[in-house]
Design a protein around this nucleic acid. Structure first.
Lengths: 207, 207
DNA sequence: GAAATTAGATACATAGCTGTAGCTAATGCC
DNA sequence: GGCATTAGCTACAGCTATGTATCTAATTTC
């Protein structure tokens, strides 16, 4: 990994980052259930004692690493292109999910022990406020401007895009841009009143 | 667990079932990454040697247990009730997902080691042919009978229901029947040409 | 430059899982 | 009833992770 001069010595932020990076790599490789202080320490090239000074458990290290991650980029609504904005929002989500942090979250969510340790607060910060809001932001923007009836913006509808992307990721086939466009055209837009089949491809009419 | 008379001795099918049950309970409790021969053996109340006679690894035991599970009930298309059939299909999926076998599959899918061991064949048998086909069967049935244009039955559209259910399960809030109805009304039916808002509740028109 | 921090290098006893071996005894089959 | 199978029991050596303790030395702070 990051081979620092053995005569120099990492401290504070630098060391912390090395440990956070290590635990994220480790969890992607071995899974949340097989995380060990030993494994993390080896990968970060630091003695285990350094880890025990701050955390008491491998999962604490992992959760702390997630807590310190940079938030994902917020999807922004463009000028007047609902369809394009939706596709871009889903692309943001895919990119995040494929990052070490995204994979780590996936590993945590199905691990009983870490799921129990994951506080409501962290869940909000790391998942709900990220993985749950990609298309809603965009849809809300256009609903506010009257592009479609606001009462169609139900919890189900704001979940469609994220749900379809999540399923593809689980199936092991990360969606391409064409796949994302298909999701928008064939599932999200029909749900807000644009009949299916009224679009064909890029530029095929966003409203 | 199952306390059999210590003077009697389990063999063959009976013993195998006890072990399969044990590993499914174990994985739900500790996660795929923390499965051990020891833990499985303790829960099945059998010596570890018995396990090693058949399997070489805890994950092998788990995959074998899944392989021997009864297939889930196939969704059946009723007389002329697309909406009701879709809801029933999703209900089948939810029930399966909440069962020990369903939870075990979830645990496997995000565990790097077990995902690597899971053969294409088992994946098909246990997931694709089950978790991936609940609504497609129903939709295909009604498309064949001309209830809606068959060309609308794209891979995205047949995934909508399963995807929404999966997301709810991940979020830890298993959907109620009302939730399932909302998914059908607000996401699936619009995608096959039934405009959103044209239904309100049970009996609100299936086409 | 001296003092206070804090990382790095050991070492060690404990605990749990692993994989195998050797034996006893219950069960099924002919 | 006798034989082949196959659970069940016990033991054991090897390995890895756990937590803690102790000491050294680099880096920051004043």
């Amino acid at each position: 990994m990051s081979d620092h001069n053995p005569r120099t010595r990492r401290r504070g932020e630098e060391l912390l980052k090395a440990i956070h990076d290590a635990v994220l790599e480790e969890v992607v490789e071995v899974g949340a259930g097989r995380l060990t202080m030993d494994g993390i320490a080896r990968r970060a090239a630091t003695p285990r004692t350094t880890l025990y000074r701050r955390w008491s458990d491998p999962l604490e290290v992992l959760l702390d690493a997630l807590y310190h991650q940079h938030p994902v980029e917020e999807p922004t609504a463009g000028a007047d292109d609902l369809r394009g904005d939706l596709i871009r929002a889903l692309r943001l989500m895919v990119d995040w999910a494929l990052s070490p942090a995204g994979r780590a979250v996936a590993a945590i969510l199905t691990d009983p022990k870490s799921a129990a340790l994951m506080s409501e607060a962290l869940f909000e910060r790391v998942f709900a406020n990220r993985g749950g809001t990609f298309t809603r932001t965009v849809l809300q923007h256009y609903a506010d401007r009257g592009h479609f009836p606001a009462e169609l913006l139900t919890p189900v509808v704001t979940d469609i895009g994220e749900a379809l992307v999540t399923k593809r990721l689980i199936d092991g086939a990360p969606p391409s841009d064409e796949d994302l466009a298909a999701m928008v055209d064939q599932a999200i837009l029909p749900a807000i009143g644009s009949p299916p089949g009224s679009r064909s491809g890029p530029g095929g009419g966003s409203r």
